[in-house]
Amino acid sequence: MTKTPKFLGRLPILPIAVLMIVLVIPALFADFIAPHDPFKAYLRNRLQPPLFFGGTTEFILGTDRLGRDILSRIMHGARYALVISLVGIILGAIVGTVLGLIAGYMRGVVDALIMRVVDITFALPSILLALALAAVSGPSFQLVILVVIFVIWGFFARQVRAETLILRERDFVARARVAGASDIRILRKYILPNIINTIVVLATLQIGVVIVLEATLSFLGIGIPRPIPAWGLLVADGRQLIVSSWWISFFPGTAILLTVLSVNMLGDSLRDWLDPKLRQV
């Protein structure tokens, strides 16, 4: 029994490779590797088709209505996808997990109160909320993250509460209590470690939701302000030309698809790794 994480031995190569190529490397190094300035309009090269569809090597994935290079825009957009998903989901997961733990462990009035707030956030249209907030403060990066937290924390709170309700009745929690463990210690050492895999899987599943949410907000003009090339905006840009110039929406859409798919696959591997019963011995 060695201490090396078995995860390293069974690294899911494909999803990690895809994520690196589509999301992480462009997000970090877009300034150096992008072939063109994402904001520069090559007006003479408007609506260039991609390579192999009549295009040239200069604009591998074609250009949009203003002649901006799609590849460069996707690369720069990766940064926003990464930051918004990471920050929004981590903050949303923390808020939801803490409140879910409290609700499930304490039960009673506190539980009822927290879960009614969750119900309210589910009932309230998030788009409407974003519109109201945008009307007050103007569209911004912070606003998008705030809306993301607002939309996803309830999923975490519900799931964590449900699992806490089950776990708090388990024998090993009772045993910890008769061994003198405090409530905080029970939550930290006995309940949280047993639901962390659920949280991780849930978080990866939320990435798809968040990217689509960001796209929706951007599309409505209350998300990331133009001309920042967020992926959602890029998809929205090609909406009217989808029949004649399909590549404008297709390639950003593919980037979203590959990212969400890889992250979900990675989430599965991560869950297996976090569950000692599935860890290979």
């Binding site: 024998d171 090993f172 061994a179 050492k189 019963k277």
Partner: peptide, 24 residues
């Protein structure tokens, strides 16, 4: 009473299969 538990009075529960934390 939390100080009494474990330190003054220890307890062994019925089912060993469920009384240990599976993740540690």
């Amino acid at each position: 009473i939390a100080k009494v538990r474990g330190r003054e009075i220890g307890m062994i529960l019925q089912d060993p299969h469920t009384s240990l934390n599976p993740v540690f």
